[in-house]
């Protein structure tokens, strides 16, 4: 573990040196590092910060000719329809619960698959299987909706064809499209199926980044495979997990519209368990197209996400500042 100490000492050394410098001098020393960040800074200013004042559109009655900033200010009117729908609580809850399931199980399986892949030695098998795992990422959500329907529909679905062939009585056939209770599980499974292969790459690469000699030394010292995973690999992934979580939490009230809309569609029998903010807003404003309502909803989601992240980041920083995002 000399490595870690070395790093820490290195930092301390520099800190000691620097403490006597003024802030301006420190900046001057960092001039190359600043320059290295300049392209990215320009990028984020140009494509993310420059349009941001336009969020004002959520507070106006947008008139194309007058432009966003010339339009009439109408306060919180654009937020009203969501707030007074009586469904905001339910929608936010659904959205958050699904996201929590996606985040926790998604990361669990991604880590799981990455670790298993790391243990597998057959090079050919590893390449082929990982390539196959990427495939779902390329299938558009609309086609996934279509395939799921072909698999699960009552009359001609694949599942029921098998059940019928096995002599299942009609009342016991699978009919998910009229049963809201099965969808939380189905949607989570579909999401995991689609994202695990893609997400596991991050972890796989992180495992590859763990110093192989540490692992080897541990094995030579008699650690078994469990111990290796428990004491070396998992701690090595901790930081990646934390970062992923912090990003995911920022979007905790932003739903995966494509997934829900293409699979559930406008089947209102299933809304009690599957309606999320995005799908509700989409349906309600379908005949009343305007940019302001959408912006208002987005702003609400961002604010909730922002506060969640601030809290979580604060907690993480308390525990171990190394893991915090900023």
């Amino acid at each position: 573990m000399s490595k870690k100490n070395g790093t820490v000492n290195g930092v301390e050394k520099i800190k000691v040196q620097k403490s006597s410098l003024t802030f301006g001098q420190k900046l001057w020393r960092n001039r190359t590092l600043i320059l290295m960040c300049v392209p990215a800074i320009i990028f984020f200013i140009a494509f993310c910060y420059a349009p941001m004042p336009g969020i004002y559109v959520a507070f106006v009655k947008y008139n194309y000719r007058k432009g966003i900033f010339g339009s009439n200010f109408i306060g919180l009117k654009n937020f009203e329809f969501l707030a007074t729908s009586g469904k905001l609580g339910m929608l936010t809850k659904n959205t958050i619960l699904y996201n929590i399931a996606f985040i926790l199980l998604g990361n669990f399986f991604a880590v799981f698959v990455a670790i298993l892949l790391n243990e597998i030695q057959n090079k050919w098998f590893k390449k082929v299987s990982q390539t196959m795992m990427f495939l779902p990422y390329f299938i558009s959500q609309v086609l996934i909706g279509l395939l799921v329907y072909n698999l699960l529909n009552y009359d001609t679905g694949f599942v029921n064809s098998i059940l019928k062939a096995l002599g299942t009585p009609e009342e016991k056939l699978f009919s998910p499209y009229s049963d809201p209770n099965v969808w939380p599980v189905l949607l989570v499974v579909i999401h995991l199926w689609q994202s695990t292969g893609y997400n596991s790459v991050v972890y796989f690469a992180s495992i590859m980044g763990i110093d192989a000699e540490i692992i080897e030394a541990a094995r030579v010292d008699g650690a078994n495979a469990w111990q290796k995973i428990r004491y070396i690999i998992l701690p090595g992934l901790r930081q990646t997990v934390v970062i992923l979580l912090l990003f995911a939490i920022g979007g905790i009230v932003k739903g995966n519209f494509g997934l829900f809309y293409n699979i559930i569609g406008t089947n209102s029998l299933l809304y009690s368990t599957t309606d999320i903010i995005e799908t509700y807003v989409y349906r309600a404003t379908m005949t009343d197209f305007n940019f302001s309502t959408a912006s208002a909803v987005g702003l609400y989601q961002s604010l909730v996400g922002f506060f969640m992240v601030m809290i979580v980041n604060f907690v993480v920083k308390k525990i171990d500042p190394d893991y915090s995002l900023f």
Binding site: V11, I14, K15, K18, F23, K26, L27, R29, N30, L33, I34, C37, A40, I41, F44, C48, Y49, A50, P51, M52, P53, G54, I55, V57, A58, Y62, I68, F247, G250, G251, F291, A294, S295, G298, L299, S302, G305, F306, V309, L325, F326
Partner: peptide, 29 residues
Amino acid sequence: KDFVLRNVISFFIYFTSLFQAGLAPYYLL
């Protein structure tokens, strides 16, 4: 770790993942 602006710039970048301007302002820009 010796880059004094690292937290400022990290936050500056991360912040954009939380707040987006929305469709119309982005499109018009």
